[in-house]
């Protein structure tokens, strides 16, 4: 028979923890994992990233580079670091790739599960708060060096504007009004955004700033990948507005970078 006991729980994570803890690498009490000695060299995880979000006049842009590194090697050239969550939000992740992707997937399922069971979307603020719990429940792994730090952005339908939330390793949640970037190249991207950002920035200007910020991050940080014109690999860019989440087509991103390069030469 179907297990009807979980009725009333809109929290998918709680259900997984209770019924299928084996599916969660990041649950609160995986004794085996927390006791295991994980040395950084023995555990070859992909890391290194620049992901960012910029509030513009119609919403928010979220973007990320595509490269994952394994020590001093390129581990993966086409990795996805930005994931749409629901119709008006997206998450970007930085840190150890495996746990990062799992957190993004779990978060997306969680928000959708809430929406379907309750019959209405979880508010942006509610999503941001829930993400805190997810980051905190990864603490045991974070202590072993498998840190996951998300950047969360969305269009707040009630407040009619784009919003950005950043997190610390123990789940602290902080809102940014304008822009933010995280990951190994985050600081470099922030410097560029700091110079280029103006309040009520237009979509086109915001896209150009984002492209330039990711370029600068890739220029300064070895773990961030730049645009790859030969393999046709470009950073992923999403806009989130009242109409929803939309990915910027690859051709448009390529054009942004060709313009940028011709300006720099």
């Amino acid at each position: 028979m179907l297990d009807l006991d979980d009725y009333g729980t809109s929290d998918f994570l709680q259900i997984l923890k209770r019924r299928h803890p084996e599916l969660l690498a990041m649950s609160d009490a995986p004794d085996a994992v927390s006791r295991a000695h994980i040395s950084e060299s023995s555990l070859r995880s992909y890391e290194g990233t620049t992901v960012l979000a910029v509030v513009y006049n119609a919403g928010v842009i979220m973007a990320g580079d595509r490269q994952a590194t394994e020590g001093y090697q390129v581990g993966e050239r086409r990795i996805q670091k930005v994931y749409p969550v629901d119709r008006h939000s997206a998450i970007a992740v930085a840190g150890a790739a495996g746990p990062c992707i799992e957190m993004a997937k779990l978060f997306q399922v969680e928000v959708e599960f809430y929406e379907k069971t309750e019959g209405m979307s979880l508010s942006l603020e509610g999503q941001a708060n829930f993400l805190s719990h997810l980051v905190r429940s990864n603490l045991a792994l974070a202590m072993q060096g498998l840190i996951v730090l998300p950047l969360f952005a969305g269009y707040d339908l009630k407040r009619q504007r784009g919003r950005i939330f950043k997190y610390d390793a123990i789940g602290g949640r902080y809102e940014e009004d304008t822009y933010y970037a995280i990951g190994s190249g985050g600081k470099d991207a922030r410097t560029t955004l700091k110079k280029r950002y103006t309040p009520e920035i237009s979509r086109q200007e915001a896209l150009e700033s984002v492209a330039e910020a990711l370029w600068d991050a890739a220029d300064e940080d070895i773990a961030t990948g730049g645009p790859d014109l030969i393999r046709k690999i470009f950073p992923t860019l999403y806009t989130i507005t009242e109409e929803g989440v939309a990915e910027i087509p690859e051709a448009t991103v390529e054009e942004l970078y060709r313009d940028l390069i011709s300006r720099l030469m």
Partner: peptide, 10 residues
């Protein structure tokens, strides 16, 4: 309905 959503998501 809710049990169906839950089992499907799992």
């Amino acid at each position: 309905r809710v049990a169906g959503i839950r089992e499907s998501e799992i």
